[in-house]
Design a protein around this nucleic acid. Structure first.
Lengths: 221, 221
DNA sequence: CGCATCTTTGACGGTACTCAATACCGGTGG
DNA sequence: CCACCGGTATTGAGTACCGTCAAAGATGCG
């Protein structure tokens, strides 16, 4: 951890993307003074399931996977969090320990903002609270939609949906491949199947012409 | 629909169970004056997926299932809503049309509260907004946990979890059977499988001594 | 009593899960 | 430069599970 004097929340465009955009100059200054910027390497965890969180993490760059361990020892990935989103907001709001584990999918830069800063603004700034409410309500819809996906669709449908989701939310690289790389196991843990099944499904999607691959990279057709 | 002069929100104990308990006497009076009590028969729908909601429904009695139609024509039931909860709060908050369909599982009594009453209190009463935030955050956790269930567990594990959930949230009848009756199809649409599979799974759970049945009723052992 | 709905059962095909073995790939150290 | 290593990807084979269609029995309501 290192305090980042070079970056001030007031000037950070990232905050436009989350509930923090409802704060005014003074409120942002306070947050900026107390925040701590942290670099997280690919594969490292930001917090663990069950951990008591002392604040939220604002994602400046990189992508994180939020997952929950099932009793059978396998992870279910519940959400991919991208630049601009707040990690751990639910836990801070409800003052519960984290329901999910957060792991970096690639190198990340996150700003830690202490719980108290968030609570103060929830108490004092109704615009901020409303924004939070909207974001969480949206997360809820996303999660409910994912439930339908898992409950009603076949593996290949779920996999295609995942690829579309990644394309829409993380974009493509210069060659037109999906911009973030997920291991076959991560994919499997998102769509709720075994990694071998995912691999075979990728093969058949290739055969039927829905996708193309280049090593690990995947292109939607 | 009929206006219920006999019941006033100020005196209604139900409201203790949801975000409305953050409102004061005056605010409750306003809501009570404008609210409309409605009786919904088993099987009738309260609102449809995609419908624009003009308010929320406070459940006074009965149980409702919230479901979403998948492209393959089958419903995925996302949530069971019980006495004391607010139906449609997410849609009203985000001002989006309903993401889910609400159908009565048994005869219900619900109070319709106009959207404007809710928005006014979100604007003016930070305690209320905070309460809403907490409830939605909790719904989110529930939904994420359900994701793990669907993604990682076998049909029989999911079915047992469902029975435990029903027991914990809706209780047992006089004979020790689960207090609400779900059709095998409803169960199937909750745990994300076909109704025949559900039926066979119930048989094997009976054989292995995990449950007992008496007609449609089910008892956890 | 008769219709509608729900439940149960059978049979079959296809899908998904598991274990095990092999291939590939990037990085490290000799 | 090459051999080695750990992690990831791929493939095979066998089995269990699940989805579907069809038909028959049970239940409840008018």
């Amino acid at each position: 951890m290192e305090n980042s004097s070079e970056t001030r929340c007031e000037n950070c465009i990232i905050r436009k993307l989350n509930a923090l955009n409802a704060l005014n100059k003074n409120e942002l200054k306070r947050i900026s003074d107390s925040k701590v910027t942290k670099r997280v390497k690919k594969g490292e965890s930001i917090f663990e399931e069950g951990e008591k969180l002392n604040g939220v993490f604002c994602v400046r760059s990189g992508v994180s996977k939020l997952s929950k361990l099932s009793e059978n020892g396998k992870d279910q990935i519940v959400k991919l969090v991208k630049k601009g989103e707040l990690l751990g907001q639910r836990s801070v709001i409800t003052e519960q320990s984290a329901n999910l584990k957060a792991v970096a999918l690639n190198d990340m830069e996150v700003c830690f903002i202490a719980k108290q800063e968030i609570s103060t603004n929830i108490e004092g700034n109704i615009k901020f609270t409303k924004e939070l409410l909207l974001r969480i309500a949206d997360d809820l819809k996303t999660s409910e939609d994912a439930l339908v996906l898992l409950g009603q669709k076949t593996v290949s449908e779920r996999l295609l949906e995942l690829f579309r989701y990644v394309k829409d939310n993380f974009g493509l690289d210069a060659d037109g491949y999906l911009a973030i790389l997920l291991t076959r196991e991560d994919m499997a843990n998102i769509i709720g199947t075994a990694k071998e099944v995912t691999i075979r499904t990728i093969s058949s999607l290739k055969k039927e012409g829905s996708i193309e691959t280049d090593g690990k990279r995947i292109k939607l057709l």
